[in-house]
Each structure stands twice: as structure tokens, then as C-alpha cells.
Design a protein around this nucleic acid. Structure first.
Lengths: 223, 223
DNA sequence: ACCGTTTTGTGCCCACGTTCACAAACTCCT
DNA sequence: AGGAGTTTGTGAACGTGGGCACAAAACGGT
């Protein structure tokens, strides 16, 4: 966590958006998409907050980090705000993604429609198991894990998804980082060590269940 | 968020464990299991923190909420600490779980080995699609969604997993809550409204990717 | 028994995030 | 034009979480 002070052109200030806000922006975006598809042209912070499942003050503060895109007494223009959030998150452009590990989970991810519709494109499915190479999953051919470097440089891939067993997760991460990937979404239940500058996000089913179990147990104790 | 003050028997204080700590306990538990399987009998906060990917002061503070289970100058007994954390989380008992939605993701979840090994047992797989009923997935028969109430009461299920499309997620949640489920793990990309006292945790692939994209974009801007 | 070494448990402070509450800004109606 | 009604944007207060740094406690060697 070094405090990098970016060199910026004059007047071009880089707004620092709090992490907690960043995590909610995609939720707002989804809610706005739903509203927009319903034909809603404008909405208040109260309405949007309801749709997003947060309180309206928090929503307004979150949006204020992006700029002043609302109109007092009126609300927010759905399409305009939608575009601004998408631009801020970076999903107006297309992000090529590589998925490693084509087990049940890898299959599910490859077939996930939310991928393509939100600016992400699966450019390769890789697996170490030779017997699966050539197989077509969601229209994409499964290839050898050793093709990683070539694919990453060809498609300029920045984001990698690990859907392999925990035992191989660290090796895969190392190879990803070495090949130039700087963001990793890890579904394997393991702690990844990566160099400074590489982002890792972890999705762990069993941890989520254990957190629920803890609260469930507490509810039971309060008999 | 009403501040429920539980009625407690005299002297029986319910330690309030911070949410952030609860979320890390499963990680510690996993790290301890790995150490224990390696034959390690005792470990320092420094070692365990390394394995869990956190800093040692934070680890010690987290553990201190459970009690004083370490020995100064020595460290923690792996087996003892493992048991204490498991007990605190509630995974010394077995939690029956129902999964609704047997698409790619449902399959992946049903086959996930981390389930059983960590105190969770899939007692039913439900799907609204009749054509899938009777199918065997991971040794469990797929049954009709309408069997939910009967299954929940028979097996005393407290935890439900939603692996269905976003459009039906709220309906499924409503039925789950009505049938007596009080903890929901939601994989559908939708905001769930549930009554007070029901816990919901959300796992959203597309949000995780968008968060990564945001940071990726920022890195690029810092050219 | 005592001293040096190791390692835990925790008080203290700082940073981040959430919520309240209100002034500023806009619309609409008369 | 002006006043009533709405809704945003934000300053300020509060609460939670993270990390340093150190006293307390255990161990081992002499």
C-alpha cells in the first residue's frame, strides 16, 4: 500500500473515490439499467436508493464523488447518470478476460450472460487437463494453460479469473502475473500472494456460508 | 437495524464479535486446518497471520474477541484454536442447506466439496423446471421447487442458496422466508428485500469484475 | 531464583465509512 | 415576480475498523 502520487496534467484532478463507494457503483448501475429499460427517464435519489437497497443519503454521497450529475428539486436523468457511472467504472470499454480452470465453476462462469452484457469478454478458457483441450464451452475453445502468455499479450488481457482447485491457485496466479495480468478474481479457497500493483478479489462460497452459520447460531442462542 | 437487547441469563454474557472479524475467522480456520494437516502442533500469531494473509496485530485482536486461547511466549495450540474458532462460527454442528436453481452454477455448488467438509450438507436441490426433476446431481435428486416448505420443515433447514436467474430471485427468497429459512446466500444479481431477522449475503460475479475494472482503469490513467 | 528472550493481549490513536440534517438550487403555481 | 414545495449536495457528528507499540506473561538457561 504505497501512497503513489500520480503525475497529473494541470487542472486534471483525479478524484479519489472511496473503496466502499466503488463497490456500490455497479449496484447503482444495475438499478439504473432496470429503471431505464422500464422507460423511466428521471429518478430521485430516494427511488434509486430503494432499487439499490441502500439509504438515500449514502446514495447521494456516493454519487457526489463522481460529480454533480443531479438536479435539485428534480432528481437524476437515468440515461445520463447511467453513462457517467459506466464511464467512471470503466465499463464503457470492453475488457478481455481469461478464465483458468474449466470445472463446474469454470463452466458456470463461461456461460454467465452477465459477462458480455457488462463490458467483459471471455477471450480464452484454459485448463491444465489435456483431455479437455479443444472442447467448446459457451462457444469458446478450451486451450492449454501454457498458451496463457501468448493469449494475454495478443489480446492485451488485464483481468484473469481463477476457477481451479486451491492447490494450483498460487501457481496460476504467479503465471498470470508474469504474463502481464494485473487484476485477478480468485474463486479458489486460498490466500494468494501477489506483487504490489496487482489487485486480487476473492470469492469464497464456504466463507460466506460460515458467516451465515455464525449469525444463525447467534440467533439460536438468543432463544 | 433495530438494536435488539437480548435477554440473557445472569453472567452469561454474549461477546459481540465485530463483523469484520467474523468474516476473517473462516480464513483463520482454513489456515489452521492446513497447518494441522502438516503436523504443526503450535504456531505463533506471526505464522498464522502469514498463512491467512493478514497482519499479526489484527489476527491477535481478532482472536482476542473469542477469548485468551494463546500462551505468551509460545503461541497458539493449533488443534485447540481450531476447535475454538469452529465452535464460535458454529461449524462444529452440521448445517442442512437447500439449493434452488440447478443451472451451471447450481451444479457447481452442489458438487463443491468444501460444502461437506466444512459442516454444510446439501439436503435438497430444487428447480422450477419440471424436465429436470428426478435428475441426480452430486448424488442428490433434483426435486420440485414446491417441495421447499416440506423439505425445510422436515430437515429443519435454516440456510438457503439461490442460484437461479435474477428475475425469480425475489420470489424464491419470499418462499424461503415463508417456509422458515432465516439465512440466504444469493448468487443472483438482484437486490433482495427480506424481513428483519433474515440475513442475506450476496455473491455477485459481475460486481467483482466491475470493481477490478475500475482499479484497472485507474492504473491505466496513471500512465 | 533470576534474567534475557519470546510472544500474547490490548490501550490508544488515526483513517474510513455511515447517517443526519440543512442550506442551496431548482420547479411549479398563482 | 414571488412563494411553496422538492430534492440535491455536503458539513459535521458518530461509529467501526486497523495498526502501532508496549506491558504482561510465559519459557529457558544458568
Amino acid at each position: 500500500m504505497t501512497a503513489r502520487t500520480p503525475s497529473r496534467a494541470l487542472g486534471e484532478s483525479v478524484r479519489e473515490i472511496p473503496e466502499a463507494t466503488v463497490a456500490r457503483l455497479p449496484v447503482y448501475l444495475r438499478a439504473l439499467n432496470a429503471l431505464g429499460d422500464d422507460g423511466t427517464r428521471t429518478c430521485s435519489s430516494e427511488e434509486l436508493a430503494l432499487a439499490a437497497g441502500v439509504n438515500s443519503a449514502k446514495l447521494r454521497k456516493d454519487l457526489s464523488y463522481l460529480g454533480s450529475y443531479g438536479t435539485r428539486g428534480v432528481g437524476y436523468d437515468v440515461d445520463y447518470l447511467r453513462y457517467q457511472i459506466a464511464r467512471e467504472i470503466g465499463v464503457t470499454q470492453d475488457w478481455p478476460v481469461v478464465i483458468v480452470g474449466i470445472g463446474n465453476l469454470g463452466h458456470a462462469l463461461a456461460n454467465y450472460s452477465g459477462f458480455r452484457s457488462r463490458g467483459f469478454r471471455v477471450v480464452a478458457l484454459l485448463d491444465a487437463d489435456r483431455s479437455r483441450h479443444g472442447e467448446l464451452v459457451a462457444g469458446v475453445e478450451v486451450r492449454a494453460f501454457d498458451d496463457l502468455e501468448q493469449i494475454v499479450s495478443t489480446h492485451d488481457v488485464a483481468i484473469g479469473v481463477i476457477a481451479a482447485p486451491a492447490t494450483s491457485a498460487q501457481d496460476i496466479a504467479d503465471r498470470m502475473v508474469a504474463s502481464g495480468i494485473t487484476s485477478i478474481l480468485n474463486f479458489a479457497p486460498s490466500v494468494l500472494a501477489v506483487p504490489e500493483g496487482v489487485d486480487v478479489r476473492k470469492v469464497d462460497l464456504s466463507i460466506e456460508l460460515q458467516i451465515l452459520a455464525y449469525h444463525e447460531q447467534r440467533k439460536a442462542q438468543l432463544s
